[in-house]
């Protein structure tokens, strides 16, 4: 899902490695802080222009119509649109499939890869798992169009054995949550496996050794030691993927294009917001949908930063 994939899942630092005391530096002089402002000025400008202002402008649009304040009218109108609730349902369904498979499979694969003693074998496995991450956005959907089209697919026997004779059969609306999950998992899981693997490496060798001496088997070690140690990473992955999943756009968009709307062009919420702006010229309605999605994303990331304890550094 790549475009919607973990925003470079990265950027996380385990808690406990706090920076040495900050206080002592607070004596810094005025000249130093003036340069601080100069150094952050360019970035702050971009942050305001492409983070803050678009958010405020979308908020303004969503509560007005032709410049007149209309309260929640736009939200009510969008909500009553016959396409809105189905789109919510589609996205929710996809997110459930995506999160469950991601969490279960990534944890299992990370633990399995981590248990490989032969170094080059483990490295190769990780490499094979994350290399599809290079293929993102429209490219990954196109590649999967081929893989899911029984007439050219490398796994056409498998598809035919499941009773699918053509691409249009495979991407029937009922199958889409699974299809999108497979595409997203293919492109995005490897990055998370690498992250989980890194977290597993952080478990002290003494604990693992002690457990083995006490006679714990690989499964018991995984269940009682590795899994609890991974919890905060799993919640990080879950929250990031949930936020990304609600944004579903490029997959249904490209599939709709490829199948002449067998996959509906209003399948997901972002597609609907796009149609409001581009088909109906209704920027207020479009803004209302993006504000709803933005509130979800902002809520998740804020909760995570203040409660998740992964960013305890400063």
């Amino acid at each position: 899902m790549t475009v919607t994939a973990p925003p470079a899942p990265a950027g996380v630092v385990p808690s406990g490695r706090r920076r040495p005391e900050r206080r002592r530096a607070s004596r810094s002089n005025a000249g130093q802080s003036r340069f601080g402002y100069v150094f952050v000025s360019g970035y702050t400008l971009l942050l305001v222009a492409f983070g803050l202002l678009p958010t405020l402008y979308a908020l303004f649009l969503s509560f007005t119509r032709n410049g007149v304040f209309v309260g929640f009218d736009n939200f009510v109108r969008v909500f009553n649109d016959y396409r809105f609730l189905p789109a919510v349902g589609h996205v929710a369904m996809y997110v459930v499939f995506w999160l469950v498979s991601l969490i279960v499979l990534v944890v299992i694969l990370a633990i399995v890869v981590h248990s490989i003693r032969v170094r080059w074998l483990g490295d190769t496995a990780r490499f094979l798992f994350y290399i599809p991450g290079a293929i993102a956005g429209a490219s990954s959907v196109l590649l999967w169009l081929f893989v899911l089209d029984p007439s050219v697919s490398p796994v056409s026997a498998l598809l035919r054995s499941m009773g699918y004779e053509s691409l249009v059969n495979v991407v029937a609306v009922g199958n889409l949550p699974v299809v999108f999950t497979v595409i997203a998992f293919w492109a995005g899981a490897g990055g998370w496996i690498v992250i989980m693997y890194g977290a597993l490496n952080n478990i002290s060798a003494d604990i693992m050794e002690a457990a083995r001496i006490d006679g714990a088997g690989a499964l018991q070690v995984a269940w009682h030691i590795q899994l609890p140690m991974l919890t905060k990473w799993i919640s990080y992955m879950g929250i990031m993927s949930l936020a990304a999943g609600t944004q579903l756009f490029v997959e249904p968009k490209v599939l709709a294009q490829a199948t002449k709307n067998v996959v509906p062009e209003d399948y997901s919420l972002n597609q609907l917001a796009y149609l409001y702006a581009f088909r109906q010229g209704d920027f207020s309605g479009s803004a209302a949908i993006s504000v709803m999605l933005l509130v979800v994303a902002l809520g998740l990331s804020t909760i995570f930063i203040f409660r998740g304890k992964l960013f305890e550094r400063d």
Partner: peptide, 17 residues
């Protein structure tokens, strides 16, 4: 906060702006 929201979340607002 901005880093952790999916980059697609801001695309439509940026387009409107």
């Amino acid at each position: 906060v901005v880093m952790l929201i999916p980059n697609t979340a801001l695309v439509l607002p940026i387009f409107l702006e």
